Simulated assay, not measured.
Amino acid sequence: MTTDLRALVVFADPSLHRSRISRRVVEAVAGLPAVQVHDLYQRYPDFYIDVRHERALLKAAPLVVFVFQLGWYAMPALLKEWFDVVFKPEWAAQAPGRLHGKAAFAAVACAGAPDDYRPGGRHARPIEDYLAPLEQTARACGMDWLAPHVYYGAERAGPADAEAAAQHAARLRALLARRAGIPLENGDAHGT
């Protein structure tokens, strides 16, 4: 664990080996100082979660970022299990609260265009509706929920889409650095 931890990136992608977006995101944020990328599927392939370890990471980080691809309008199964066992109300939401005052947001990739996520659109609801369980969990624990960072069009493939994925990763890196108070060096290709 980083001693001067400014952000914990809780990363969950069950198919990282074939995900061009998740790989780029991990590469972009992993190099930030005082940021720990915590890959749940790598650490817990058997879904047996070390709750004490996870809670220690959460207590040490002032900012928590949940990175995943939305699948069938929900977070990946291991991330849901992680919330269920780590964020037990008797631990996470007790007064004054172990997580009170920390900030959190989701960085999510999803299929479709922004217009698909609105009333009358293909998915009929705004993306925030699909992230509501995360938001409510964070708020119930006294955390400050920040606006999500969303990458639309995750299902597309091709040279132009590879560039869009790279730009998404760079924007997330810059956003994470800003929210965590980490200065980016001038000319940092990932921070522009």
Rank of each mutant, 00 (worst) to 15 (best):
V29T: 05
H53S: 12
R18Y: 03
I49P: 10
A95W: 03
V86F: 05
L134R: 02
H17R: 13
D129P: 09
L8I: 01
D115P: 06
V26G: 03
W72D: 11
A34V: 02
A132C: 07
L32E: 08
Y48V: 12
P62C: 03
A74E: 09
A7M: 03
V10H: 01
L58W: 00
A28L: 02
C110Q: 06
A77M: 14
W91H: 01
L131T: 06
D4T: 13
P126E: 15
E27P: 02
F66M: 07
V108M: 05
S19E: 04
Q69W: 05
R23S: 13
R55P: 07
A103P: 05
A103N: 09
P133D: 11
A56D: 12
G101A: 07
R43Q: 15
G121Y: 06
P62I: 08
P119E: 11
R43F: 07
R43A: 13
D46W: 12
Y48T: 10
G120N: 06
R20C: 05
V35P: 04
K88L: 05
P96A: 00
R52G: 13
V37G: 08
A124I: 04
Q36M: 09
V26R: 12
L79P: 05
F11R: 11
A107W: 11
L79R: 08
A28H: 11
P33M: 06
L57M: 12
A132W: 04
G71F: 13
K80C: 01
A124R: 13
